[in-house]
């Protein structure tokens, strides 16, 4: 089928503001949305800039706004985005982040938030001789949260992030959940106070945009609610 790819372009060296450009692209129903972008870059306009790496929904590089929703371009099939020949798919960078060029956003703030929640195992006492063991039941508590690929679709889909770009956001706080609820972790006392602020947990109004955006179908809002309860108990 023939489709129209409508792409939000922005080159800070030449453009005053982002603008839309359209490209006619041939596609099969089971092509990924990413393949449309690759077609544009390889055959129509080599200046188009976007991030991609594995193209299999693992690296989390190509999160962007597709037809108005934050998605992974590689994990979306054309047949799920259009109803037929001649339809249009719109591509824009993730919202609430500075755009470096075209579909590439500046992720430095995103990763600053990630580091702020101390996303590593904090333990007390001497290290065991072998690895720190965890039972399958203990892993079940955090299993869902470990699936996060840090693509940023959730954080940039959150209205609290839109209103305050410094809001920690679901991705970082999901990491906080993943470590705080890890039965081997002793870092709650250090980690929770970072979340217990007006940049953190209490600005989550359980709107569920993060759940909807997550390409890995993680039940993010649920885990953030568990963190809130833990914070209340700890306070």
């Amino acid at each position: 089928m023939e489709l129209t790819a409508k792409i939000k372009r922005y080159n800070p060296e030449k453009d005053d503001a982002p603008h839309w450009e359209t490209y006619e692209v041939p596609a099969e129903p089971d092509d990924s949305a990413l393949s449309l972008l690759l077609y544009v870059k390889w055959h129509l306009d080599g200046t188009l800039t976007f991030r991609k790496s594995c193209a299999h929904g693992i690296c989390g590089s190509d999160a962007m706004k597709i037809n108005g929703e934050n998605k992974l371009a590689c994990s979306e099939l054309v047949q799920d985005l259009v109803s037929g020949d001649g339809d249009t798919i719109k591509f824009a960078p993730l919202p609430a982040a500075p755009v470096i060029k075209d579909l590439v956003i500046d992720q430095s703030r995103f990763f600053e938030k990630y580091r702020a929640v101390k996303p590593w195992l904090m333990t007390e006492g001497p290290a065991p001789e072998r690895e720190r063991e965890q039972s399958p039941e203990e892993f079940d508590i955090i299993e869902d949260a470990t699936k996060c690929i840090m693509c940023g679709a959730c954080t940039h889909a959150c209205p609290s992030t839109w209103s305050d770009p410094d809001y920690l956001g679901p991705a970082a706080m999901l990491k906080a959940y993943r470590y705080t609820f890890d039965t081997r972790d002793d870092g709650a006392e250090e980690r929770l106070p970072v979340l217990d602020s007006d940049k953190g947990l209490w600005k989550c109004y359980t709107i569920f945009n993060c759940n909807q955006a997550c390409p890995k179908d993680i039940d993010i809002t649920r885990w953030l609610s568990a963190l809130k309860r833990r914070s209340v108990t700890a306070a």
Partner: peptide, 18 residues
């Protein structure tokens, strides 16, 4: 890196819970 995400001075957990 100087981070704005330090420990908050006052917990808001009580208000959220209420």
């Amino acid at each position: 890196m100087a981070s704005q995400y330090g420990k908050s001075r006052r917990s808001n957990a009580g208000n959220w819970f209420l």
